Computed example of a mutant assay.
Amino acid sequence: MSKPAKTPPSFATLVQAYFAEYLTQQRALSPQTIAAYRDAFVLFLEFAQSRLGKSSAAIALADMTPELITAFLNHLEQQRHNCVRSRNARLAALRSFLKFAGRRDVSSLQVVERGLGIPAKRFERPMFGYLSREEMLAVIDAPDKTWIGQRDHVLFLMLYNTGARVSEITGVKVGDVVLEERAACVHLHGKGRKQRSVPLWRSTVKAVRAWLKQNPQLEPESPLLPNRNWHAMTRTNVALRLALAVHTATQPYPDLAKRHVSPHVIRHYLPFLTMSRCAARSRSFKYLQQLRER
């Protein structure tokens, strides 16, 4: 007697297994990556409901046609005004789910194959902007002497010193900072659970020591740069504080008013500074060679 055919899993079962088992247990992705995939799926399901006239519980894997996915991606760009990079990130989340679903439901391989055929959209990468040393120092010194101003001063100095992402700096805890002489550094926790230690300049060490002395209640597990509620600052909070500092710095440097200065622009300054110093050393070396040849 032949065994009855196995019923393929439902779309809801696949989605639950994808997030509860595959992403968290099998791939062990970071909470930030899982949250990004979750947000992409929430947006897609909301769009699919309105487009197909079905509830989320009635949607099937066969409904994830290239036409529906393409319409969703166009919706992100045209109605939600997402950039191409965000569009491709949402597509990557859907493609990851389709690959998983194809392994769990072999009968839907044709649907999966068609969905995976949607390519990522190409886009022109803008030229990296950066600030001059004088402009950067003007932004760092822009905050006042209030508690928030002193915190912002340390914040901008840490961004300037480390070239770190905003999420890395806001995630720094007091225990992540080492202020010993000749060993001063900060331990950063980056994307994909990558960790690295970045040396701190003497000026940065001095500012951090003054900040910790002013706030003795901060414990090793406390955020180094908290908000008013003593929680970690958000990305939006950092962008707003930087915008205020840039506005103040436009008085000595009016050209800053014509430029969009984001935390990522500060991140570009460190490689610019490194390349500038390397170029200066190279010119000095060539000059010494010319003197020897003479």
Results as ranks from 00 to 15, higher is better:
Tyr253His: 15
Arg277Thr: 06
Cys278Lys: 11
Phe285Leu: 09
Pro271Ser: 01
Ala48Cys: 06
Leu242Ala: 05
Ile266Ala: 02
Pro9Asp: 10
Pro31Met: 09
Thr170Met: 10
Glu46Ile: 12
Met64Asp: 00
Gln214Phe: 02
Val172Ala: 14
Ala93Lys: 03
Ala92Ile: 05
Met136Arg: 10
Asn74Thr: 05
Gly115Lys: 02
Ile266Ser: 03
Pro66His: 09
His247Lys: 13
Glu134Tyr: 07
Tyr287Phe: 13
Ala36Ile: 09
Pro252Gln: 05
Glu113His: 07
Gly149Lys: 13
Val174Leu: 08
Leu73Tyr: 11
Ile148Cys: 04
Leu179Ser: 07
Arg228Tyr: 06
Ile140Phe: 09
Arg133Lys: 15
Asn227Leu: 09
Asn82Gly: 01
Asn215Phe: 10
Arg196Met: 02
Val154Leu: 14
Pro143Trp: 07
Leu68Ser: 09
Ala279Thr: 05
Ile140Gln: 07
Leu256Arg: 03
Ser222Glu: 06
Asn237Lys: 05
Ala35Arg: 15
Lys121Ser: 15
Val111Ala: 05
Glu67Met: 02
Ala58Asp: 11
Phe41Ile: 15
Tyr160Lys: 02
Met136Asp: 15
Asp152His: 03
Asp39Trp: 12
Leu137Gln: 13
Lys191Cys: 01
Ala164Asp: 04
Arg38Asn: 08
Pro199Lys: 11
Val112Glu: 02
Arg85Ile: 05
Arg104Tyr: 02
Arg259His: 06
Val106Ser: 15
Tyr18Val: 04
Thr24Phe: 03
Ala184Arg: 03
Arg228Thr: 13
Met233Phe: 09
His187Trp: 11
Ser108Thr: 03
Gln290Met: 14
Leu256Ile: 01
Val154Ser: 11
Arg133Asp: 15
Leu288Lys: 14
Leu256Pro: 00
Leu224His: 12
Thr33Asp: 10
Ala60Phe: 00
Leu109Asp: 12
Asn74Cys: 02
Ala232Lys: 13
Ala245Phe: 12
Arg241Ile: 13
Ala89Arg: 07
Val172Pro: 10
Leu91Val: 06
Leu76Asn: 00
Asn82Trp: 04
Gln290Pro: 01
Thr33Pro: 03
Ala28Thr: 01
Leu131Trp: 01
Gly175Cys: 14
Arg182Tyr: 08
Arg114Asn: 12
Arg125Cys: 01
Ala164Leu: 13
Phe123Ile: 01
Trp230Cys: 09
Val198His: 12
Phe156Thr: 06
Ser262Asp: 02
Val238Ser: 11
Leu94Cys: 00
Asp176Trp: 14
Gln110Asn: 08
Pro263Trp: 03
Glu168Ile: 03
Trp211Tyr: 06
Phe285Gln: 10
Val84Trp: 08
Ile140Leu: 13
Pro119Met: 08
Gln32Ser: 14
Ser107Met: 12
Glu21Thr: 11
Pro254Ser: 04
Ala280His: 07
Pro220Cys: 06
Ser56Leu: 07
Tyr287His: 14
Glu293Lys: 14
Arg133Phe: 08
Ala57Asn: 11
Gly175Asp: 05
Tyr130Phe: 15
Phe72Gly: 00
Glu124Ser: 14
Ala12Asn: 09
Ser55Ile: 09
Leu288Val: 04
Ser86Val: 08
Gln195Ser: 03
Arg122Trp: 11
Leu155Phe: 09
Glu67Pro: 01
Met275His: 07
Ala232Val: 09
Ala138Trp: 14
